[in-house]
Structure formats: structure tokens, C-alpha cells
Design a protein around this nucleic acid. Structure first.
Length: 120
DNA sequence: CTTCTGACA
DNA sequence: TGTCAGTA
């Protein structure tokens, strides 16, 4: 009955332009935990979203350790409600970091834009 | 032929 | 992370 859309490690890897080695590596770092069909890894849509988040985090310059932290912070707010303040504080910190990154990007963007403008 | 674990670059 | 080995 359940037409769960799943992916093999190969499909997921090619879909996101990463290697299967990378996916196993992230799993070893506990960033993704696909189901196992015997030995074979079975990736679900949620695993897909997690990978998307991980790769985006990488592009934003976060380390795998930081991404791992964000990941379990974002999913733990249901279970560990007694620690909500700590979680909120951590997320706020991430928000601040992102704001600085955005400022840097905007600054650099403006400089490059005006630079190109001089030569065209 | 695809995937897995472990090891080494 | 890439890659090579030896399997299941």
C-alpha cells in the first residue's frame, strides 16, 4: 500500500552530484541515517531533504560538525523540550553567523559589481 | 552489475 | 574525499 519513494545510494548520489563515498562518509558522521535493507542503504525523501540541507550548509561555509549540530537541534525540539532555551540560543547563534555571512556576500558582491562595471 | 566495509593516499 | 580490494 505504501508507495514510499526511495532511492539507492547511486541514485541519490547522482541526483545531487556527489559520490557514493560522500554519502557513506556523511553517514559515518551521523549526518544521515538511511534505512538498511540487509546491507543495502535505502534513502527516503526525508533523507533527500537532509542531504539537501547538508550540501547547502557546506556551500554556506559550515563545517560538517556544525551542520550535524544544526540538524539534531532542528529535530530535537520535539523530544528535548526541557532544553528548549539551550536549543533556541544555539539557533539564534546560527542566525547571527548567517547574517554576517550575508553581509560579507553583499559587500563582496557590490565590490565586484562596480569593478566589472568599470570595464564594460 | 551494484553495493559494502576497510584501508591507505 | 578518492580509490582500490575482495565480497555478498
Amino acid at each position: 500500500m505504501d508507495a514510499e519513494i526511495t532511492f539507492s545510494i547511486n541514485e541519490l548520489a547522482s541526483d545531487f552530484n556527489v559520490t557514493t563515498r560522500t554519502l557513506r562518509f556523511y553517514e559515518a558522521k551521523a549526518l544521515i541515517s538511511p534505512k538498511k535493507e540487509g546491507q543495502r542503504r535505502i534513502y527516503s525523501q526525508s533523507d533527500r531533504e537532509r542531504l539537501s540541507f547538508i550540501l547547502r550548509g557546506k556551500r554556506l561555509g559550515f563545517s560538517l560538525a556544525e551542520i550535524a549540530e544544526m540538524l539534531d537541534l532542528y529535530e530535537s525540539d520535539n523530544k528535548k523540550k526541557f532544553q528548549s532555551k539551550v536549543i533556541i540560543d544555539n539557533i539564534k547563534e546560527h542566525i547571527e553567523i548567517l547574517k554576517y555571512k550575508r553581509k560579507d556576500i553583499d559587500k563582496t558582491l557590490q565590490e565586484m559589481l562596480s569593478l566589472v562595471k568599470e570595464y564594460e
